[in-house]
Amino acid sequence: MTVGREGHSQVGSGAATRVEAEPSAGSAIRISNVTKSFGAPGHGPTVLRTIDLTVRENEFVSLVGRSGCGKTTLLNIIAGLERPTSGTVEIHGRAVRGPGQGQGVVFQQHALFPWMTALRNVVFGFRDASLSKSDKQERARELLQLVGLSAAADKYPREMSGGMQQRVAIARALALDPEILLMDEPFGALDELTRIELQQELLRIWEARKKTVVFVTHSINEALALSDRVILLAPHPGRIERDLAIDLPRPRLRTDPRFIALHEEIWKGLSS
């Protein structure tokens, strides 16, 4: 496997090197006092209000909340696709000014480029200018293998099932070798079986690659199966309601009484 953690400073153009001695060392993402409203300042409803959240390196954090409570908006702000109205987001101590600073994103719909094969979609993900075309192809094949899709390299997105498309999207995001992986309900449109399969794959990849993951879902089971921490967002305006550490060993069984108790707790938090 040549796609390693080495060389992840390639992301972004002339990005500053990591400041290891920051007081925030060990925290991968630091969201401070983030507020977001769309439209002219002072107008439009507040979508997010005073969000403070720190995600540690290699932590798997889920955002759970009703639809419309601002999960996607918060994820987009971390991704640098959306600017906060006020407040700051830092990744490894660097202020986020836009996308391509080490954030890999997997969207709810696969968002693959339909005119590219699976392989070319993943090749697109390599932004490192020092890699030759054949290097990129070789590494893209390795990533497709990692997500279990070696055989589908030459298929176009429309020729793949939803589960396969999402696997390619994950491989493409990994091609950036991102420090953090942001996932917005990536398995929301999949059937139950495929969904569970991909959850297991994701855990395997996360453990092998040691990524920091922020994962949006509206499935309590999914959040509990995957996360080190579950953040409950409350709507109108979007704000953090609870921050639950999930201290269960993996793989987790839904029949585990502690799993059930946590499920109950989150459920209560969401419906209050």
Binding site: V11, G12, S13, A79, L81, G98, P99, G100, Q103, G104, V105, F107, Q109, A111, L112, F113, F124, G125, R127, A173, L176
Partner: peptide
């Protein structure tokens, strides 16, 4: 727009 966003995440 999702394709444009996806491309932007790759800089």
């Amino acid at each position: 727009p999702i394709l444009v966003r996806a491309a932007r995440t790759f800089g």
